[in-house]
Amino acid sequence: MHLSPEVELGLVVASAVVFVATLVAVPMLVVRLPADHFVRPPTRRSVLIHFGRNVVGGILVAVGLAMLVLPGQGVITILIGLSVLDLPIKHRLIRRILSQPRLEHAIQRLRERAGKPPLEIPDSDEPSPPASERRAVNSRRSRAPSGSAGRSHA
């Protein structure tokens, strides 16, 4: 299949525009995310907001998939799209993507440069606990004595 020169030029221009837009938009979105965005419990929303979020999230995932072969930040765009979606599989996919060391390092570096706290990344093999449980576990960890006192080594 041969494309006309006008269509080819249009695709090149569209690809360049998407590339530049993602270079600006994706880092801004990553920096604006609250530090606990990926570990806090979901909030209830109206049907209209639920539908709108799924439409926007689906578009971001589709654009991110396209950017895997076109210029742009495909993986980060997919991650942001998935975080917007309200689907049961969302949390598992996000944990799997965020478990990639290079991506986590890039995200944390963006946030550090912007003076934001690091994102709390959920463990890849267990679901996110509710916020109240996280606070309880974190406070127990901070009060726990260091060393191996009390453990038996038989």
Rank of each mutant, 00 (worst) to 15 (best):
V69Q: 04
R53I: 01
P101Q: 00
I49D: 12
L68W: 02
R141T: 01
L119T: 04
P129L: 13
L93A: 13
D86P: 08
I78P: 03
A144C: 09
I49L: 13
A114E: 07
Q100G: 00
R92K: 14
S139H: 08
R92Y: 11
A149G: 15
K90G: 00
P118S: 14
R140T: 05
H91R: 11
N54F: 06
R141P: 05
P127Y: 09
L70N: 02
Q100N: 14
S148N: 11
R92I: 12
E126K: 09
V69H: 05
L98A: 05
R143T: 11
R102A: 14
P117V: 11
P118W: 07
L65V: 15
R140Q: 11
L79N: 01
D123M: 06
R113I: 04
A114Q: 07
P129A: 09
P129S: 06
G72N: 00
R143Y: 01
E120L: 13
V63H: 04
R141F: 08
P117T: 13
R140C: 04
Q108Y: 07
I49A: 11
S146A: 12
S132F: 13
A66W: 10
G147Y: 11
G115Y: 02
R141M: 09
I89D: 08
H153N: 10
E126W: 11
L48C: 10
P88W: 06
F51Q: 10
L60I: 03
I97A: 00
P145K: 12
P129D: 04
I59P: 03
L103K: 05
G52Y: 07
L70T: 00
S142G: 04
V69N: 03
E133A: 13
V63Y: 06
K90Q: 10
L48E: 11
R92W: 13
G52F: 12
R141N: 08
P129Q: 06
L98Q: 00
V61K: 11
P145A: 13
T77H: 04
D86T: 15
R53E: 08
A144T: 15
V61R: 10
L98S: 02
L98M: 07
V69R: 07
G115V: 03
K90W: 01
L70M: 12
I80D: 01
A66H: 07
I94Q: 00
E126R: 14
N54Q: 12
S99H: 11
N138Y: 07
L60Q: 09
Q108M: 10
L103Y: 04
L65Y: 15
R141E: 07
K116A: 14
V61C: 11
I94N: 03
